[in-house]
Every structure is written in structure tokens, then in C-alpha cells.
């Protein structure tokens, strides 16, 4: 893979992730009983980046998505929350994927990402509120997170298997 091809691929993934998170923000949350819970559709792209790119480039995709999505419709406080969530979940997903002996598919990786995203957000929230009692909200959020994480994992699995251009890029990378 040449340098330009890699750049284009990173840019493609990042822009898709930005668009998806903007569209998701426009949809009213289906989880009206749990404020703060969301589908986490942008996690599809993070999963695909982790599975198709080296760690260094996948982290670039995540960082670009974070900054652009904040600039296009967020505030500093949402950057704090989603930044902590995204970075923690990215590290957790990489670690889980590295543990090969556990034999984990994309579904498990994506569910881990969802739960650790919530943990990261709530840690920042309890730091701002100066009380650990905020963590009591974790079970509600992570139950929903595990369910949506499984759904996102299935989606990303189908995408990885069925998008032909993806195989083209993966072949390029192998060269």
C-alpha cells in the first residue's frame, strides 16, 4: 500500500465515521428511559478500522472522528465526555482483540468497546460532579451498551465480509 492509498483509506473511514455520528445525533434516542444511552453507530467504523488498519492508523481514524464530530456540532463538555469514552474504548477493544487465546469475534470486541465507552464517560462525569455516586448509573448504560454493541458487531461483521473494496485494500496492505 502506498502512502497515498493509506491516507485516502484513513480519510474515507474518518469521514464516514463523522457523517454517521452526525446522523446519529439527529435521530432522537430510542432509549428515552435512559438519558445518555445511544446506539453508538460510529463504533462500526472504529471496528472496521481496528480490523483493517495497523494500530497507529486506526488511532488516527478515531482521533480525526472525535475532533471533527465535536467541531461540527459539539461542545467542549461533549468533547470531554466522548473523548474519554472513545479513547478508553479504543484501548479496550485493541486489548481484547490482541487476546487471541480467548477466540473473540467482532461481536465481543464491539460489546467491550460499548461498555468501556460508558465507563470512560461516567468517570469523567464523576470527576466533574466530584462524586463516585455517578458510577451507579453504569449498569443501566452498559446493559443497553452490550445489546447495541452486539448489534453493531454483527453489522460490522457483515460489512467486513461483503464490501469488495475492503478486500482490495486489505490485499494492498498485505503487499
Amino acid at each position: 500500500m502506498t502512502k497515498n492509498q493509506r491516507l485516502v483509506y484513513i480519510a474515507l473511514l474518518a469521514s464516514q465515521a463523522v457523517i454517521i455520528s452526525l446522523v446519529e445525533r439527529a435521530i432522537p434516542s430510542p432509549f428515552f428511559f435512559a438519558p445518555g444511552a445511544k446506539l453508538g453507530l460510529a463504533n462500526i467504523i472504529t471496528c472496521m478500522a481496528i480490523y483493517t488498519l495497523p494500530v497507529k492508523d486506526a488511532s488516527k481514524v478515531v482521533l480525526i472522528r472525535l475532533i471533527l464530530a465535536t467541531l461540527l456540532g459539539g461542545t467542549i463538555s461533549t468533547l470531554l465526555y466522548s473523548g474519554a469514552g472513545a479513547i478508553l474504548s479504543f484501548i479496550a477493544m485493541l486489548t481484547i482483540k490482541k487476546l487471541r487465546f480467548l477466540n473473540i469475534s467482532l461481536i465481543g470486541v464491539s460489546a467491550t468497546g460499548a461498555v468501556f465507552h460508558n465507563i470512560g464517560q461516567l468517570v469523567v462525569a464523576s470527576w466533574i460532579a466530584q462524586t463516585w455516586a455517578v458510577m451507579l448509573y453504569l449498569p443501566v448504560l452498559s446493559l443497553i451498551g452490550i445489546l447495541t454493541g452486539i448489534a453493531i458487531g454483527i453489522t460490522a461483521n457483515y460489512l467486513l465480509n461483503h464490501i469488495e473494496k475492503l478486500h482490495y485494500y486489505m490485499n494492498l496492505q498485505a503487499l
Binding site: 469475534s105 452490550i146 454483527i154
Partner: peptide, 28 residues
């Protein structure tokens, strides 16, 4: 197809995540 996609490791990790998420509740 879904069952084939879901590996045993996934079930293990999901149970582990559930346990982690109820940790603060138990602590408090």
C-alpha cells in the same frame, strides 16, 4: 448464521462485561 458468528469467547466476554458493570452497584 448469527449463532455461527458468535464464538464461545464472545459469551465469556459478555458475561465478564456484565459483571464489571454491576461492580459499582455492589461496591456502593
Amino acid at each position: 448464521a448469527f449463532i455461527q458468528m458468535l464464538k464461545p469467547g464472545d459469551l465469556f466476554i459478555i458475561v465478564l462485561l456484565l459483571m464489571i458493570s454491576f461492580l459499582p452497584l455492589g461496591y456502593f
